[in-house]
């Protein structure tokens, strides 16, 4: 686990159609200590994905610094695991081979990486699906594989961009329960992006509210763990915090 720190991060896109520069991120500074779970919430178009894509190294940033464990990031790398909204599983690989992909790239021998993959699949209750292809699974199962694939590569930081936005409400709550449990077991550093306020509060140690490319507010979430929906639905502290964040997002 390593810390992530963003210092005066900025991004301007060139909009080729309009022929002008668009500022997506103005000046974002954020510290995520090792082993912390941070959610970033904000309305659609406020720049959440842009931040995540820069941290992942998929797109270059226009100003400021991105440091992982004190080192500046250059392009994508296995130190930052990514979970995509569209799952991004390799359709031509079985679940086992998807999860074993990261170790394979590190040169881990077949038997060993299969063992790693099975261990992580068991963590998410997916052992029975190891030999299936992704399109034979439901959306919720696919995203479990997506999370497990990123974890199995043991990244220093886990980046998640609205990972549960395209599964049904029921499954989403289950996935949130599971992610919370996995985080409590392994304590990875996580940046979790969402526009769903209860989700952000439920999962995080801290919620960052983003508005028009700037940090509007940071809200600590001191709710005790383990967190499960069965308990939190009726929890007053959870409701208060959610309402507080919701008000901030509305004002954004």
């Amino acid at each position: 686990m390593k810390s992530l720190s963003l210092k005066n991060l900025a991004k301007t896109y060139f909009d080729a159609y309009k022929g002008e520069h668009v500022t997506a991120i103005r000046d974002v500074s954020l510290e995520v200590p090792a082993g912390e779970f941070v959610s970033i919430v904000g309305p659609s178009g406020c720049g959440k994905s842009t931040i995540l894509n820069m941290v992942a190294g998929f797109i270059p940033h226009s100003g400021g610094d991105i440091l992982v464990g004190g080192e500046a990031v250059k392009g994508p790398g296995p130190d930052r695991g990514v979970v995509f909204q569209s799952f991004a599983l390799f359709p031509w690989k079985t679940v086992l081979d998807n999860v074993g992909f990261g170790p394979k790239m590190r040169g881990v021998p077949k038997a060993e990486r299969d063992a790693i993959a099975r261990e992580y699949l068991a963590l998410a209750g997916l052992s029975h699906a190891a030999d299936r292809y992704p399109n034979e699974l439901s959306g919720g199962m696919q995203q479990r594989v997506g999370v497990v694939r990123a974890l199995a590569n043991q990244p220093d930081v886990l980046l998640m961009d609205e990972p549960f936005a395209s599964v049904d409400a029921q499954t989403r709550m289950t996935l949130q329960d599971e992610l919370s449990r996995i985080w409590e077991e392994r304590r990875p550093t996580v940046v979790f992006i969402t526009h769903d306020v209860p989700e952000a509060v439920f999962l995080a140690n801290r919620v960052v509210v983003l508005s028009k490319g700037k940090v509007l507010a940071e809200v600590d979430v001191p709710i005790s763990r383990p967190r499960v929906w069965d308990r939190l639905v009726a929890d007053d502290q959870f409701k208060d915090l959610s309402n507080q964040v919701l008000a901030l997002v509305r004002s954004a």
């Binding site: 992942a56 190294g57 998929f58 392009g75 994508p76 790398g77 296995p78 930052r80 695991g81 990514v82 995509f84 991004a88 599983l89 390799f90 992909f101 990261g102 790239m105 590190r106 694939r149 990123a150 590569n153």
Partner: peptide, 8 residues
């Protein structure tokens, strides 16, 4: 992107 960030 997924492959890149898994170290490929």
């Amino acid at each position: 992107r997924a492959a890149q960030s898994l170290g490929a």
